[in-house]
Design a protein around this nucleic acid. Structure first.
Lengths: 367, 367
DNA sequence: ATGAAAGCGCTAACAA
DNA sequence: TTGTTAGCGCTTTCAT
């Protein structure tokens, strides 16, 4: 019953003040500055409030007045719910949530459907700042965020003038993974990568598309590969690179199939994420290819599932990324010039990479 | 550069109107009702806005005026970041996010630290409604939510007058799991459960504490067990029930150890969550107890990790719970009287439950 | 098609 | 300790 009374606009601070015969300031103080009025008066105010069903100061009106929303907005590239399916995204969210709760700030997940151009949700978000996580660099939602007069931190994005940034060195990390494979003797390789732009392109990637990819992370990782292999004389333009729009294990499997069909002679399948790599391993198994004996498979991210599978990959501190992004956003101090945080990564030597079959190395290391 | 200009309060709708020599209404219309003014004028407005660095109508001011925040608040029992570590909570979040994005609403994670009594975050949340997920029934944050004049949906909570509810029948589900164990021949059992109240009590649970547990879900599950076993003559007050505050695999393991130490003769360890059960299985292994040959272990939830481990458990539709909660909240239709949604559960016959050792059943089924 | 007037509910100087 | 005054920035009838 109490509830149903509340549902239609109940008392306001002003009406409470009138009822009590005090000023609005006093009522406001009763809630926000208990030390500014006598305990007795405060008690009376609060009691009358309860009697009238006054729910306390309206948060929106307060936000308007104080210019503080008490929340941080998060913009992701995917449907909101996707974030809860991708282990790396979950780790990022956990870190960001950690930073937010430390600061007593809410975390608003902005429903920015990448398929619609509708950026209204960004405009509507009542937040004190934004964290933007891994969206394409030409995403209109990102543009909308940057137009908002609030601080912003981007993560896994290219450097932007005057915007704080958190990330890793994707290119260097992938470069060192590539060098590991090169040292093992791999020269004929294939690549499976995540979506490179907003349009769906489930298939081979042209050099043009690869180099102008709108996802910073993917572009950088591919660049690291190209750089490392080109340095040892591999004609990178001949290497099959297959892209998938959906980031799922099934996508990884089908992409792996496409690469293997196009060149059955490859000795290593390099995937730009662990999820894709797990799918690739499934496909290898399906074809009777033993990993790593017949085929080397590598991933990127270092998610738990990959670790369990013994995947050779690059581990990146996803939780730390989220936390760092939150901290950067919430540390009002030294917001003078844009800051940039680059976190360390680690090459994980799993059990899915070995020398190619029939090489001299194999004779040394065994199959 | 553009950014730094924006950071200090830029133009407002009024200043833009002044600059253009039109009324605020017109500027407002340019953004919200494009059909209400000539394309030419609208173009001029938008262009001038860009030139002045006007970021569009302030969302908070708009919310105040329209009485719509465009977001749903989520209150959980745990530190915010916990939600991203618990598979069941993640599933719930995914479902809720799904419902929110369908409706174009944001999802605000409210930083309600359960250790502090500070409910300010609830008061501060600029949302059109709340979803409350599995908090203790005496949680002050919950009370604060209920005082807010916005619709609320509770999930995994006891029925509340005039509040929509989503959940499962925890008691019945656990009852049927118990009956399964009883049918297998188990009579001497132990129980591991999650926290029962806001205070930490890592240890045995008194009957008093069990029956007055403040977490609806745990209380119901324990009640289902007690009911089923008492019905076959088991003296439930003699059954060791061990509680853990932290919901982790490690907690499950240590609680299992405590139960097994207190009564090494038990033939089944019933856990009120899969996470705890996974820990219990680890502890069994550590003691050289084969599951299910030497010890039956069961869980609750049906998370993926449990499925992989072959756990005998109850599967509940966590994603659907989240989605249903969101839908209920966002369907303004028929908000006349409180609605209640009870979703179905399913007993999962895994490989961790078998007849007790040395029973007649075992001689039939084999060890 | 455009404008004037009237707040939405609150907080923060500043006065008393 | 309490009250007065002034908006925060916007939308929305209702006129014109």
């Amino acid at each position: 019953m109490a509830r149903s009374m509340h549902v239609r606009r109940p008392a306001t601070l002003a009406s409470l003040a009138a009822e009590l015969g005090v000023s609005r300031t006093t009522v406001s103080n009763a809630y926000n500055r208990p030390d500014q009025l006598s305990p007795e008066l405060r008690r009376r105010v609060l009691e009358t409030a309860r009697r009238l069903g006054y729910p306390g100061p309206d948060p929106v009106a307060r936000s308007l007045r104080t210019r503080k929303a008490g929340a941080v907005g998060l913009l992701l590239t995917e449907n909101l719910s996707y974030a809860f399916r991708d282990p790396a995204a979950i780790g990022f969210l956990e870190g960001l949530a950690l930073a937010c709760e430390d600061a007593g700030q809410g975390l608003l997940l902005v429903p920015a459907n990448p398929e619609r151009e509708d950026v209204a949700a960004v405009h509507r978000a009542g937040v004190d700042g934004f964290v933007v996580y891994s969206v394409p660099d030409d995403d209109p939602h990102l543009a909308a965020v940057l137009e908002r007069p609030v601080p912003t931190v981007v993560c896994d994005q290219p450097d932007l003038d005057n915007v704080d940034r958190v990330g890793i060195d994707d290119q260097a990390a992938m470069h060192s993974l590539a060098q590991h494979l090169i040292a093992l003797g791999h020269r004929r390789v294939g690549v499976v990568c995540m979506r490179l732009a907003r349009d769906r392109n489930d298939g081979f990637v042209t050099r043009e598309r690869r180099e102008s990819a709108h996802f910073h992370v993917q572009r950088s990782r591919l660049a690291g590969l190209a750089q490392a292999f080109a340095a040892v004389g591999v004609d990178w333009s001949a290497v099959p690179v297959v892209e998938r729009f959906d980031h799922t294990i099934a996508s990884g499997a089908s992409a792996a199939a496409q690469v293997l069909d196009s060149d059955p002679q490859i000795t290593a399948l390099i995937c730009t994420s662990d999820i894709l790599a797990l799918g690739a391993m499934g496909e290898a198994e399906r074809r009777g290819l033993r990993v790593p004996h017949d085929l080397t498979v590598t991933g990127f991210d270092g998610i738990r599932e990959a670790e369990q599978a013994g995947l050779t990959t690059v581990r990146q501190p996803v939780l730390e990324k989220g936390r760092a992004a939150g901290k950067l956003l919430l540390d009002s101090a030294e917001r003078s010039r844009p800051r940039s945080v680059t976190l360390a990564t680690e090459l994980v030597h799993g059990s899915t990479a070995a020398p190619p079959r029939g090489t001299a190395e194999e004779r040394w290391f065994g199959p």
